[in-house]
Computed example of a mutant assay.
Amino acid sequence: MCLGFPGKIIKMDEYSAVVDIAGTKREVSTMMLPDEVVIGDWVMVHAGMALAKMDEEEAIKTLEALSDLADEMDRMETDEAR
């Protein structure tokens, strides 16, 4: 299974962009995007590649769901350690 993360484009050049994914900044390739993107757009990022442009509302919902999942996994790990 592959997991992609929504990132907001904060800087870009011809073939790459810097995206902010929940406060972490990563440089990603934009060569796989079929549509033109601009600073402020949201994209789905996987393995260093921006794969698709995303709606901001959907991107934020996805980040919240991923955060909730990570929190639950942390709780489960803590419970198992007891």
Rank of each mutant, 00 (worst) to 15 (best):
residue 28 V to Y: 09
residue 3 L to N: 02
residue 61 K to G: 02
residue 10 I to S: 00
residue 4 G to E: 06
residue 56 E to R: 13
residue 55 D to C: 08
residue 48 G to T: 10
residue 5 F to M: 13
residue 11 K to W: 15
residue 38 V to N: 06
residue 5 F to A: 08
residue 58 E to Y: 05
residue 57 E to S: 11
residue 74 D to E: 15
residue 37 V to K: 04
residue 11 K to T: 00
residue 59 A to P: 07
residue 14 E to Q: 10
residue 61 K to M: 12
residue 60 I to Q: 10
residue 7 G to I: 14
residue 39 I to F: 00
residue 74 D to L: 15
residue 61 K to L: 13
residue 47 A to F: 05
residue 7 G to T: 11
residue 1 M to F: 10
residue 24 T to C: 00
residue 10 I to V: 15
residue 75 R to E: 14
residue 51 L to P: 01
residue 3 L to D: 01
residue 46 H to M: 14
residue 50 A to M: 08
residue 65 A to G: 03
residue 80 E to M: 15
residue 70 A to K: 08
residue 32 M to Y: 11
residue 8 K to Y: 05
residue 31 M to N: 06
residue 19 V to Q: 01
residue 49 M to C: 10
residue 68 D to H: 04
residue 10 I to R: 04
residue 60 I to C: 04
residue 82 R to H: 05
residue 79 D to S: 12
residue 22 A to F: 08
residue 15 Y to G: 12
residue 74 D to P: 01
residue 24 T to K: 07
residue 49 M to W: 06
residue 8 K to P: 06
residue 3 L to V: 11
residue 73 M to Y: 11
residue 73 M to K: 14
residue 17 A to Q: 05
residue 79 D to Q: 13
residue 7 G to A: 01
residue 62 T to Q: 07
residue 4 G to P: 02
residue 71 D to T: 12
residue 64 E to L: 14
residue 68 D to G: 00
residue 17 A to M: 11
residue 82 R to D: 09
residue 17 A to C: 12
residue 76 M to A: 14
residue 7 G to L: 05
residue 12 M to H: 08
residue 20 D to W: 06
residue 40 G to N: 10
residue 48 G to I: 13
residue 69 L to W: 12
residue 30 T to E: 02
residue 55 D to E: 09
residue 14 E to A: 13
residue 4 G to N: 02
residue 22 A to T: 01
residue 44 M to P: 04
residue 44 M to N: 04
residue 50 A to N: 03
residue 78 T to M: 15
residue 41 D to Y: 10
residue 62 T to S: 04
residue 47 A to M: 13
residue 73 M to F: 12
residue 62 T to N: 03
residue 54 M to T: 09
residue 67 S to V: 11
residue 2 C to G: 10
residue 13 D to Q: 06
residue 24 T to N: 04
residue 56 E to T: 11
residue 32 M to C: 09
residue 15 Y to K: 12
residue 15 Y to F: 12
residue 43 V to W: 01
residue 64 E to D: 09
residue 74 D to F: 12
residue 32 M to A: 14
residue 28 V to K: 08
residue 16 S to F: 05
residue 7 G to D: 00
residue 15 Y to L: 12
residue 62 T to L: 12
residue 49 M to D: 05
residue 6 P to F: 03
residue 82 R to G: 03
